[in-house]
């Protein structure tokens, strides 16, 4: 028994609820020290394009799901994550050079983050909407709505918590996402995709790409069918160029401090104000 050969996992992309390889056929090697760990897919701009198509198609359905339903699905993600804790601890400690205690803490924080945002789903409109007392015979109210498709460049580290910090606040309000994972520690992202695949999250709502961030990010920033981006995970020096490219369709582009929480959610909302006459 001691000579048993491990069955390794093939790390692929997560697009439209499925796990395809990159259309480019490319992979890149991940090592831990000198040891080979995995050959995750190196997503191309066409993979990104396909992911955006999937995210766009899934967006109206996700936004029109009840807030209660979205909250339950986010909570389900937390449940699924909890059950897989040991697997994440292993992958985090392998690639992030942290102790298993630290890795475990990251996983627990990630789980709690999902629980926190899950609870927001049916409170966003209450907390961030308003009724507006206009001077006239009109009922006037403002409701927060999702922006649409959001591109996310996840931070390099912490690979799981960083991803969750970006993703949960985007999804909770009804946006769909195309996320580029930590380039140096991509395994947790794909294992996390397996969590999503078993969490009742509709296909296409979250799409996860692994690969070279600087290769994909400019294509994402210039993509005319992405409404907004979280570029917190992009190197500071590349951010101005991404913002400039994003101006072509006036993408809303944000980079958050590590402390930001509700702001990550409210930044990806559009305020819609509705007037209606009051009369008999």
């Amino acid at each position: 028994m001691s000579n048993r050969i491990d069955v390794r996992k093939t790390y692929k992309l997560f697009i439209n609820g499925q796990f395809p390889r990159s259309e480019s056929g490319r992979v890149y090697e991940i090592k831990s020290g000198k040891d080979f760990v995995a050959n995750p897919s190196q997503a191309s701009r066409k993979d990104m394009r396909d992911a955006v198509t999937a995210a766009r198609a899934a967006q109206p359905g996700w936004a029109n799901a009840t807030a209660y339903n979205r909250g339950q699905i986010l909570y389900r993600i937390a449940e699924m994550l909890e059950g897989r804790t040991s697997q994440f601890v292993e992958e985090i400690s392998l690639l992030e050079k942290v102790t298993s205690i630290q890795a475990k803490a990251q996983v627990k924080q990630s789980i709690d983050q999902w629980v926190w945002y899950a609870g927001w789903a049916d409170k966003i409109a209450t907390a961030f909407g308003s009724t507006n007392p206009v001077a006239g015979p009109y009922y006037n109210f403002t409701i927060p709505e999702p922006m649409g498709v959001v591109g996310i460049l996840a931070p390099e580290k912490p690979s799981l918590l960083g991803l969750v910090n970006c993703l949960a606040p985007v999804l909770v309000s009804g946006n769909t996402a195309v996320l580029v994972a930590s380039q140096s520690a991509p395994l947790t992202a794909i294992t996390f995709a397996e969590v999503l695949a078993t969490s009742d999250l509709p296909a296409g709502v979250c799409n996860i790409l692994t690969g070279i961030k600087d290769e994909i990010a400019p294509w994402m920033a210039s993509h005319m069918d992405i409404n907004a981006m979280d570029i917190s995970g992009a190197a500071k020096k590349t951010q101005p160029a991404l913002r400039e490219a994003g101006a072509d369709n006036l993408k809303r582009i944000f980079s958050f401090s590590d402390k930001a929480k509700t702001q990550r959610m409210t930044s990806f909302l559009e305020a819609k104000t509705i007037w209606h006459t009051i009369g008999i």
């Binding site: 507006n132 206009v134 001077a135 006239g136 006036l250 305020a271 007037w275």
Partner: peptide, 25 residues
């Protein structure tokens, strides 16, 4: 960003105004 139902082009300081997509930030 602004939807007028059974009215149009009404403005008020209490009422947020602004657009989605290429209509602004």
């Amino acid at each position: 960003g602004v939807i007028w139902a059974n009215t149009f082009n009404k403005f008020d300081p209490t009422s947020p105004f602004g657009g989605y997509k290429e209509s602004g930030w």
